[in-house]
């Protein structure tokens, strides 16, 4: 800038002396002298270059400013798109929560499953992996569970006629019924040919890391083979595969009622619902667990 000012000052003096009042021209810059042409041309040339540079810089700054505002609008539009989905999903959940029956929220973006009732969480599950195979339809909408279809049925303990109540209780104690007896790989068949495929990976606490990796690889291979052989007969148009840890997959099977609504969410992560079981501030009045 200082350089520019200096050249501008010099240029104005040269121009003044050249075109208007020659007598006022400075002694060093005599327009009529043969040597004055070079500094004048130099000054004019340099000034022009500097001016061009300045204009270019200004344009560039202006351009980046415009780009910034464009980015800003784009960002805002993206925010509005996200808010629209959030509003739609919340409205869908609200309509489910108005009904007292529990419902399931499967969030493909935040890799989570929540069993909820009236907007409160009964149980939450972590999804390890999601494979939605380019499914775009039927997302952010409500599915209706029709059937839980395990690959292998759990063998129930039997009580024989005439065995008696106490013997039955003893049999139940010997083969305790619980989530660990549930299947870990199953399909949740929903309306309109939609399926949530629940598949299991070894749980963190199961065996060593290498053994877990081996089991995990084996299960993936089995699943690929299963998909390959089943693809010819596959009826479902929309299939989403959710990989859970073995324990969580079993607990999910255990917890689900025969029929319920499932809200499949994608594109946003929803805040966690408050638990239906409150942390007790009034512990003194509660009967403690025995």
């Amino acid at each position: 800038m200082i350089l520019l000012k200096r050249y501008m000052r010099r240029l104005s003096r040269v121009l003044r002396s050249t075109f208007s009042n020659k007598s006022e021209a400075s002694p060093g810059l005599e327009a009529n002298s043969p040597t004055c042409g070079i500094p004048l041309r130099c000054a004019v040339g340099l000034t022009t270059i500097l001016l061009v540079c300045l204009v270019a810089c200004g344009c560039r700054q202006q351009g980046s400013g415009e780009q910034g505002s464009v980015d800003n609008i784009e960002q805002l539009r993206k925010q509005v798109a996200e808010l629209t989905i959030r509003q739609q999903v919340l409205a869908a959940e609200y309509s489910l929560a108005q009904n007292p029956s529990p419902y399931l929220i499967v969030n493909l973006s935040s890799h989570s499953i929540g069993l909820r009732a009236r907007g409160r969480s009964l149980r939450a599950f972590k999804v390890v992996e999601v494979d939605k195979r380019s499914v775009t339809a039927a997302l952010n909408s409500t599915w209706a569970l029709k059937e839980k279809k395990p690959f292998a049925k759990s063998e129930r303990p039997k009580v024989l006629p005439g065995q008696g109540d106490e013997a039955a209780a003893e049999a139940a104690k010997q083969a305790l019924w619980g989530p660990d007896r549930m299947p870990a790989d199953y399909d949740l068949i929903c309306d309109s040919d939609k399926t949530l495929e629940i598949r299991s990976l070894p749980s963190q606490q199961d065996s060593s890391r290498i053994a877990r990796w081996g089991k995990s690889l084996y299960r993936r291979l089995v699943e690929r083979y299963r998909r390959l052989t089943a693809s010819r007969n596959a009826k479902s148009e929309v299939r989403i595969q959710l990989w859970l840890s073995e324990n969580e997959a079993k607990l999910l099977f255990w917890s689900l009622p025969k029929q319920l609504a499932i809200l499949v969410v994608e594109g946003i992560s929803l805040p966690e619902a408050p638990s239906a079981i409150p942390s007790n501030p009034d512990a003194s009045s509660a009967i403690p667990a025995k």
Binding site: R156, P157, V159, P161, A169, W177, R181, K290
Partner: peptide, 11 residues
């Protein structure tokens, strides 16, 4: 408190 639920037995 603790409670007891269904045994899963089949008769």
């Amino acid at each position: 408190d603790k409670c007891s639920t269904g045994s899963g037995l089949e008769l």
